[in-house]
């Protein structure tokens, strides 16, 4: 059941970082609700002065049958490791593969555990919720070893996930990690559903606070707090200008469920206003 032979030609390795018993933090670029995964990865890369250490060769895992573009820019699938030796942390910022998922996830853990001596894996995700941007964000967690439950109970705003259904790639990664004896925790901060396509600094801040505490990171949360304040102020202006939106947000605050049309209206209006 253990690790299979590592295929070294799957990687372009720029540096073998000196890490010992460190943590791997994974963020997925695809379906990144609230831009939680990518913002945290970018903030960590910059804030901890991480350097790129390796790429996974995308050829086996992504379809090369054309070029995707976003905002007029051609996109190339990314699957890159970054490291901060000082903070004993490895980051993996990646698109979700579209084929050979098991081999891809195995490659991620091959590099992390065999080259970088990582023994814990964290994934950053987000889950839409019927809350407003004024409410505190809980982090729902999935973990891959019974003993991690007690460890997670020590943190504020953390709740255990209940789920039976299609697996996300993060759950698949945790499962592969468990087969190799690696601990894994997926973090699913709640985001107000209407911020799914926008950045949710509240969820990002809550998640970053958890990572700071859990991984002893020195990440400065001040900038995130000011981004959250900015969002709150903008939303306050929207509420003033738009009575319908104000009423819909009132409903959520009073725990009245919105119907599908109301959810759509709120999401569209917030998106329009924020852009």
């Amino acid at each position: 059941m253990g690790a299979e032979t590592m295929t070294i030609d799957r990687f372009n390795i720029y540096k073998k970082p000196l890490l010992q018993g460190g943590s791997l933090v994974v963020g997925w670029q695809s379906a990144d609700l609230g831009k939680v995964g990518m913002t945290i990865m970018d903030d960590l890369i910059e804030g901890l002065a991480c350097e790129p250490v390796a790429d996974i060769d995308p050829l086996d895992f992504f379809p090369f049958d054309g070029a995707d573009f976003r905002s007029n820019l051609v996109q190339v699938p990314e699957a890159r490791f970054w490291a901060s030796e000082e903070n004993n942390i490895l980051l993996f910022k990646s698109d979700e593969p579209s084929q050979q998922h098991y081999q891809f996830l195995t490659s991620v853990l091959d590099f992390a555990s065999e080259i970088c001596n990582i023994n814990k894996v964290y994934t950053i995700n987000a889950v839409p919720s019927m809350i407003t941007h004024m409410q505190s964000r809980k982090i729902l967690t999935v973990y891959n070893r019974e003993g991690l439950r007690d460890e997670l109970q020590e943190y504020d705003d953390v709740e255990n996930m209940e789920w039976e259904g299609p697996p996300a790639i993060s759950s698949y990664l945790l499962w592969v990690a468990r087969r190799r004896g690696l601990d894994g925790i997926s973090l699913w901060p709640e985001i107000p559903f209407y911020l799914s396509a926008l950045e949710d600094p509240g969820a990002i801040r809550t998640t970053m606070l958890f990572l700071n505490q859990r991984l002893f990171l020195p990440f400065d949360l001040e900038l995130l707090e000011s981004r959250d304040d900015e969002l709150v102020q903008k939303m306050a202006r929207l509420r003033e200008q738009n009575t319908e939106i104000n009423e819909l947000l009132d409903k959520i605050e009073n725990e009245v469920a919105l119907n599908e049309q109301e959810q759509m209206t709120l999401t569209q209006e917030v998106y329009r206003f924020m852009n």
Binding site: Y143, N144, E159, N160, M161, E164, G165, A168, S171, G184
Partner: peptide
């Protein structure tokens, strides 16, 4: 199965990933 198939379902109970 993993080289041939993608997982169909995950079972998470009280946070613990029980089964894929």
């Amino acid at each position: 199965p993993w080289d041939f198939f993608e997982p169909r379902k995950v079972v998470v109970k009280d946070g613990l990933l029980e089964e894929l």
